[in-house]
Structures are given as structure tokens and as C-alpha cells.
């Protein structure tokens, strides 16, 4: 009788362990194991060299798995524009460098990256040239004709920005992005 009872307890323990391990495995499984790494981003390879002399550098690399994790943090169904963007994007690469004074980088070096956007299915939606600033906004579509990639290169006297977004890009989300994330007066103040 006692042996039967102890065997039952051990069996129950083993079942619990098995269930716990299965649960852990399920937790560990990524929602999307697709590896669409931005590490292999050739478009902006080498832009890190612009960090030399910069007083502030911002470099962000997000692949599909990271974006899935970010999307999850917005809760089920995403959180408005951010959630929708995180769910739709496959890769994000951002490089931003701020300089103390103008002339810290050569425009010719930036032009090399702009030249890469000539051809290859890219079309310039915006090519803005002024005495002090250059901005290029380019898109590349998928087979269905919808935009699947966006590149922004902004060269200002004391600020240089490279943005490369890959994935499903909704123009309305990008518009909201510009006005919600970019508009200075809408920035939230952290306490």
C-alpha cells in the first residue's frame, strides 16, 4: 500500500516536472523564428564611421525577433501606431550622429550612401537639397507594389541621420509617425 502511494507521488511529481518543462518550452518558443537580421544590412554598412567626432551617437538595430518582442510589449493587438508598425516591420536600422559644430563629416561620404539608392528598385519620393541640408526619402516596393522598404538619409550641418525600415509599411502609419513621434510639442516629458 505504502509502495503504491509513494510510486503515485513520484509519478505525480514527474508529470508536474514534465508539464513545467513543456510550459517552459512553450514560453521559450519565439512567435516568429524568422531571421531577418539587420546585421546583414549592406545599404548602410560602414555608416558607423560617422560616429567619429560626434558628440552623440544613436545606433539601433532591430531584427524580426526583436520587433516581435517590442510588439508584444504593446499588449495584445498592439498599441495604435506603434504596435501596428512593430508588427508589420521585419527590420529597423537607425543611425543618428550629432556634432558640436558643422563640418565634422564630409558630404561626399554621405553621397556614397545616397548613390546606392539610384536603381535597385528604389524610387526617390523626396529629394530635398538646400544650402545647408540634404534629405532623401526613398521607397522600394514588393511584388504586390506595396512599399516594403523605406530609407531616409538626412544630412544637416550638425546632424546626420540614416533610417532603413523593412517590412509592411503603411503610409498612414508613417504619416502618424512623423507627426506623433517627430513633432516636438507632442513629446512626452518623463518625470
Amino acid at each position: 500500500m505504502g509502495r503504491i502511494r509513494s510510486t503515485g507521488i513520484v509519478s505525480a511529481g514527474l508529470v508536474l516536472i514534465f508539464l513545467t518543462a513543456a510550459f517552459a518550452q512553450a514560453q521559450n518558443a519565439s512567435p516568429n523564428q524568422k531571421q531577418d537580421s539587420v546585421q546583414g544590412d549592406r545599404l548602410f554598412a560602414g555608416t558607423e564611421s560617422f560616429a567619429k567626432g560626434a558628440i552623440k551617437s544613436t545606433e539601433v538595430n532591430l531584427d524580426k525577433n526583436m520587433l516581435a518582442m517590442a510588439g508584444k510589449s504593446f499588449g495584445p493587438g498592439g498599441q495604435g501606431t506603434k504596435g501596428a508598425l512593430a508588427d508589420g516591420l521585419d527590420a529597423v536600422l537607425v543611425r543618428e550622429y550629432e556634432y558640436a559644430k558643422p563640418g565634422q563629416y564630409k558630404m561626399a561620404d554621405v553621397q556614397k550612401y545616397i548613390d546606392r539608392l539610384n536603381g535597385g528598385g528604389w524610387f526617390h519620393m523626396v529629394r530635398e537639397r538646400s544650402a545647408t541640408e540634404n534629405t532623401d526619402v526613398c521607397f522600394r516596393g514588393g511584388d504586390d507594389g506595396e512599399p516594403r522598404e523605406m530609407v531616409v538619409i538626412s544630412a544637416q550641418p550638425t546632424q546626420l541621420t540614416f533610417v532603413h525600415l523593412k517590412g509592411r509599411l503603411s503610409m498612414s502609419d508613417l504619416s502618424k509617425l512623423s507627426h506623433n513621434f517627430g513633432s516636438p510639442q507632442l513629446k512626452t516629458r518623463s518625470h
Partner: peptide
């Protein structure tokens, strides 16, 4: 997740600001 979200927020902030600046320019 939180680290990814922070990075994503930062990336979107830079992207949004750059698009906004382009629009303003």
C-alpha cells in the same frame, strides 16, 4: 521585451523626427 520596446521607441522617434524635419524643410 522592455529593452526591445525602448530601442523600437527610440528608432521610431528618430525616424519620425527626421521625416518631420524633412517635411518642415
Amino acid at each position: 521585451q522592455q529593452a526591445a520596446r525602448q530601442q523600437f521607441d527610440l528608432a521610431m522617434q528618430v525616424t519620425g523626427r527626421t521625416l518631420y524635419q524633412a517635411e518642415q524643410a
